[in-house]
Amino acid sequence: MGKFTNFLEKLDSLDRRVIFLIIGLVVLIPLLIPLGLPIETTNLTEDAFYAIEDLPANAKVLLSFEYGPSSKPEIHPMAVSVLRHLFSKGNEVVIMCLWPDGLFMANEALELVAHDEFKLEYGVDYVNLGYRPGNEAVIKGITKSFEANFSVDSRGIPISQIPIMQDVQTARDVDFIFSFSAGYPGAIEWVLYAGDPLQVPVSSGNSSIQVNQLLPYVKSGQMKGVIAGMPGAAEYETLLIQKVEGKEGLLVNKAHALLPNFKENRDATKFMDAQSIAHLVIVLFIILGNISYFVKRKKQQKY
């Protein structure tokens, strides 16, 4: 018992580099030797998934990319999954970016999903309007007119010549807004300046750190669910595969043929083993750290 107490006391003054090394190893090993832990879906992700699932076939969805390479591991898998979901249902997609790097992220996701997988026609099934500076002023601007803010798309085509934009003149004309957000401007700005004033449903995929801040909006119905970080993205991937496998709801023919592709290329699910084990180790550290703190305090009180 005395030895254990001594060990706990020493833990308090453990070199932080040892902790870094342990975390590094517990992340690295499951990446090299996957365990295939099961993924359980949660209400937050299900709400976001079914909000999109319930959209009719002719619905137009506005996706906004507000993240860059620094938050790509968390958010990019969501963007890929949401695009797959929308195209599987035959929905049309209008993309815009409020972060300059968002344009590269959007192009990368579209190249994979719209071009390589679904082989869709640019301008008819989807469009990428590109990046515009101005943060929430751009959101406010498109509630009045897309053309005034995006006279041309990311390829330099005037939006008056893009078929999909013919009946999308303002943000009011889209049926759903989805923001992939890693900070400001992001999901909150979409609720404040577009979702609430226009009464257009908004949902979002976020970096984990923002999720708590968004929960009040979900609780009040101002936001339809949230995809929370990498675990949320893995849940979304699972829900999408379940839908396509079970042939549930609206589904275009191509989607079923792409099922092996969806199963093969799901980054978030692939990384979840490492994530879960790292969480487990961190929880252990917290417990040990707290026990060590209390043991030390008790000892100090004795003297």
Binding site: N58, Q166, D167, Q169, T170, R172, D173
Partner: peptide, 14 residues
């Protein structure tokens, strides 16, 4: 000028 070609019996425009 063309606004939309649709099968729907109700839709929005500005």
């Amino acid at each position: 000028v063309s606004v939309i070609e649709t099968r729907d019996l109700e839709f929005n425009t500005n």
